[in-house]
Design a protein around this nucleic acid. Structure first.
Lengths: 247, 247
DNA sequence: GCATCGGCTTGATCCATGTCAACCGAAAAT
DNA sequence: ATTTTCGGTTGACATGGATCAAGCCGATGC
């Protein structure tokens, strides 16, 4: 009987416990590349799992930092607020991705993390992570890679905001989402957006009307089918071409 | 005789050697917060100092990554190139700042680092830095902070590119430079720009003409005096006000 | 079943910034 | 000293996306 959990005490206990070692996201998340024994040591560290309801904050800008968070399920956005009321979405995060890295710098969170659907996170006390990563080379190295990847991702967004036109930005955004859904075993061609047009616009440096118009345009061109938050990508290459050709 | 280097063999040797322990940037750079003994261990790691002439690359996108670099003197820019020829400056770096963090992620550099004036850097072999930071907690923690700070900085740039108007962007840029020069003991009100209008524009997501016009506008308003690359800030609060008031 | 509300779409118009072009001045090359 | 080159400034005009405004649709509440 494959895919069936044997009903003995020992196994059902380990399933209940929050554990990286039996998390199906482990290859996308912090545990990447760890041995079984190393994984078990990481399990000890991640004691808290927490549910965050849609719309609730995981943390707020200004709060003291002490943990980073791995998303076990669900979908988040992070945003930054300026004194004058302007704000900007700095990212959308999905299962297996880490939240809170910005807080290490000043020991206070510098942005807000808000659940866009009911979600579940694993809290990783940062000082314990540092301790453990002194002992497990693979963990240390992978954590450095994750931080670096975040920097590279941010450069990509800067590129997008600095040099791309509205439609290019939206195409890049859709292709990026598609690719991340694929990496999680979901369809690359069909998905639900968890965020509003306004949130997309904020992330892409556009107004919601412009985002809406670009969606309509893509639909007219036959690149995608949109119905509210439901997106089907009909012509990936069309979208890619749109991004790569300087007009 | 304070501030005088005694002329005995041992000390003059250690002065010649590249050494964090007698670098006047140590409080801005990687060695921040280390004890004297820890500093000396860091010295062993940083064996290579290298001069980079104005216009030369420190590294190029695509090259294998093995070191990060601390700027000992001079001024750099980093930029990213897209296949279609578009490029964007992702940052300007000055003495005491680190370059190359983006390369950790894929073990290849993802951007170009180019000297904007004759410069000197310390190469820090990354795998040895990881080894040492397993032993020196302060080093590990500070390095994490530096990476996190880079992420926070990038969020600031995303904010700037996503929500600010041309003049706000330039004001933010000047204030940021001013603040960083101040931290290095230079005047906060008077400095030379090392980069062209085009490079500023690329960084700020603007065309060089727009940058030029904004400089002229600031001068008309009496906020600054510009003469080519020489900038004097005459009214810091004027510039700040310009940034904070939503129009 | 009807009203309300939030999110979305679409149209008309406006404006900030891009584009194109001419010119200037400082610095480098001859 | 003269010419060339490069970076910078400024003006005239074009345009992509913002703004303002109306209306639609699906979900939620009464």
């Amino acid at each position: 009987m494959p895919n069936t959990i044997p009903l003995n005490q020992e196994i059902s206990l380990s399933v209940i416990k929050t554990a990286c070692s039996n998390c199906n996201l482990r290859e996308l998340c912090l545990p990447f590349g760890l041995s079984l024994e190393e994984l078990e040591r990481l399990d000890d560290l991640i004691s808290t799992r927490r549910r965050i309801k849609r719309g609730d904050h995981l943390y707020r800008a200004g709060e003291a930092f002490d943990s980073i968070y791995a998303i076990r399920s669900g979908f988040f956005k992070t945003d930054v607020l300026l004194e004058d009321g302007r704000d900007q979405v700095t990212g959308f995060q999905m299962a297996g991705e880490l939240l809170g890295l910005d807080g290490i710098s000043t020991e206070h969170h510098t942005c807000n993390a808000i659940a866009l659907e009911d979600s579940e996170i694993c809290a990783i006390p940062f000082s314990r992570l540092e301790t453990l990563s002194r002992e497990i080379h693979n963990l240390q190295h992978h954590f450095h890679k994750v931080m670096s990847r975040e920097i590279v991702r941010d450069h990509g967004v800067m590129m997008l905001l600095g040099t791309m036109r509205a439609e290019e930005r939206l195409a890049a955004f859709l292709l990026n989402l598609s690719q991340r859904f694929t990496a999680r075993g979901f369809s690359h061609a069909e998905f639900y957006l968890r965020m509003t047009r306004e949130e997309i616009g904020s992330y892409l440096g556009l107004k919601l009307e412009t985002v809406s118009r670009a969606f309509s345009k893509f639909q007219e061109e036959g690149y995608i089918a949109v119905q509210q938050k439901h997106i089907r990508i009909l012509n990936v290459n069309g979208l890619k071409a749109l991004m790569n050709h300087r007009v």
